[in-house]
């Protein structure tokens, strides 16, 4: 077991972890933050996407031990985030989710898109979403939701 200290959603956490524990399992099972979902567990589906030190990353193929000292933000940590507030509203209005399994990862990726690529058009949004698989709602509503937030932010 290895001791790690990091912040999760702004709160300091110190814990002892097995090296093979993924960050996703650590936040879900160790911290009871079950908003982070696990789909494929090999970095393809995007359901587990969280923010590590300000950038979206895959928590299923990132080990908790390698996050010692990091600032991790899971979907639960964006309650007061302005971009995420707009995205939540837009996902609701545009039918951007149905079963909700992909939604935490979709939202983390969507937030990255609207902040990093303010001029993104539909083609670019779809390209950026290629790393987040949705298999029930479909992408029409998700893309429309993200485009509406981009539009709003462009004023």
């Amino acid at each position: 077991m290895t001791e790690i200290s990091l912040t999760i959603n702004g709160a300091p956490v110190t814990a002892s972890v097995e090296p093979r524990t993924s960050l996703a399992d650590f936040v879900r099972d160790g911290q009871r933050l079950t908003g982070t979902h696990l789909g494929c567990e090999h970095g393809v589906c995007g359901a587990c996407t969280v923010e590590i030190d300000g950038e979206p990353m895959r928590s299923c193929i990132t080990y908790a031990v390698s996050c010692d000292g990091a600032a991790v933000t899971t979907i639960e940590g964006f309650d007061d985030d302005a971009a995420m507030e707009d995205l939540r509203q837009a996902f609701t209005e545009n039918h951007g989710l149905q079963c909700g399994y992909c939604t935490p990862g979709m939202l983390v990726t969507a937030r990255d898109i609207v902040r990093r690529l303010p001029d993104a058009d539909e083609k670019r949004v779809r390209l950026e979403l290629s790393g987040n698989l949705c298999r029930c709602t479909g992408y029409v509503g998700i893309v429309r939701a993200i485009l509406s937030v981009l539009e709003k932010r462009r004023g």
Partner: peptide, 9 residues
């Protein structure tokens, strides 16, 4: 390469 969340790490 892959996806942005992979390229970031």
């Amino acid at each position: 390469i892959a996806y942005r969340a992979v390229r970031n790490r």
